[in-house]
Design a protein around this nucleic acid. Structure first.
Lengths: 217, 217
DNA sequence: CGATTCATTGACGCCGGCGTCAGGTTTTTG
DNA sequence: CAAAAACCTGACGCCGGCGTCAATGAATCG
């Protein structure tokens, strides 16, 4: 796919599109979706006003184009991780690990996500992170039926484990020294065994605490 | 405080202020902070444009006025709940219970909060929910020093327990049949003992699951 | 190399929000 | 009851974003 098109015209089209997307990325990240005007993006892109409309009809399409590719990737990898899971421990660990690894691989992009959470919710009718939650809920229900996960309150468990992961992702974006493996380990252990019993085998977690927890922020 | 002022002028001032705030509440809830124009609020309030500026200098002040009172209340009640806590179990249970009870008492207000999360973050320099998180972290650290809570990775634990509570609050706003006591019980039990051991005593939680979990959404 | 196609440019008219302020109305004061 | 104060009103000028389109220039075609 890294083959650039032959014609000069076609190449320029790609360059313009890229310039617009890059300008948009910066704008949305810095000011947030709502506060950004198309004019802001146009100015930053260095192109003329009319040119913009050759590529995107409006702000919403622009924003969608910016996130859609990566969004699918995220969903797929998490799903694949859950497929691999054979027991409850790997179910949570692999889910969190896959998620946090992707977040770690492109913090800037996820900063953009966090920055614009409500827009994403509204765009995907409450379903961007909501989609992830929904799929988590389905997977959990499935796992419960199969006996892999005990039958608890599905919605509450979904909310709790999603919320935990969400904030951990945010934590990782803020603190670049955090490692996905450690956080995934910590949260999995916590969810499965609870604080009381996690204290019995504190090696891994306390190590993390000493190395990273104290220095964070 | 329910004594209305004597002068007709003073009474009218309160009425106007209330009308503006009520109009603002509706606008912000429906369209989100950024999308709302002062003109929208003015139109909905039924007053003249100039009048608005006798009460609020700009949109930000308006929004702040809308949330500030209740915000303090929230902080205080959570803090009070933690003061009461003598052990780890009551620490989490009382915190969650207090939070969820307040949320339950005025779902519309918290819908407004969720709807405008990023604005709140930016207004209180990442500190609206962030404030709550920060205080949670401090309380946790304190509890760890006192030996009430085992010494785990503070930041991770803060993120996990905050995220869990956040999503549970959202769940409660969406599903009005949810009871604060049940959810607080569930999440406390889960955090303390983990999924594995929670399954050993599933009475409370499975009850919730059967009654509510299946029907939700 | 001339003809043709096609994207880029940026000025333009429109629209709507912004905050103001002179004028009018109502309440308070004495 | 009249003078004064308070404050509400809404039209006004300004500003800036919006999407358009005729003109320009560059790439492609034959």
């Amino acid at each position: 796919m890294p083959t650039p098109p032959q014609g000069k015209r076609a190449r320029n089209k790609l360059a313009n599109r890229a310039a617009i997307l890059e300008a948009a990325r910066r704008c949305f990240l810095e000011h947030g979706y709502e506060a950004v005007t198309i004019r802001d993006v146009i100015r930053l892109s260095g192109l003329a006003a009319g040119t913009f409309y050759n590529y995107f009809p409006d702000k919403a399409s622009l924003f969608r184009a910016l996130i859609e590719a990566r969004l699918g990737e995220l969903q797929e990898q998490i799903h694949a991780a859950r497929e691999r899971a054979t027991d409850i421990e790997s179910f949570f660990y692999e889910s969190y690990l896959a998620t946090l690894k992707i977040v770690r691989s492109d913090p800037a992009f996820f900063a953009l996500m966090f920055r614009n959470e409500p827009v994403l919710r509204s765009f995907y009718n409450d379903n961007f992170f909501g989609l992830i939650m929904a799929s988590l809920k389905l997977d959990l229900q499935d796992a419960m039926v199969r006996g892999v996960v005990p039958e608890l309150d599905v919605d509450a468990l979904t909310a709790i484990s999603f919320g935990a992961g969400y904030e951990l992702a945010r934590l990782m974006v803020q603190d670049t020294r955090r490692r996905p493996e450690d956080l995934a380990r910590t949260v999995t252990d916590l969810l499965l065994n609870g604080i009381n019993r996690s204290a019995d085998r504190p090696k891994l977690i306390r190590l993390g605490s000493r190395l990273l927890g104290g220095a964070a922020r």
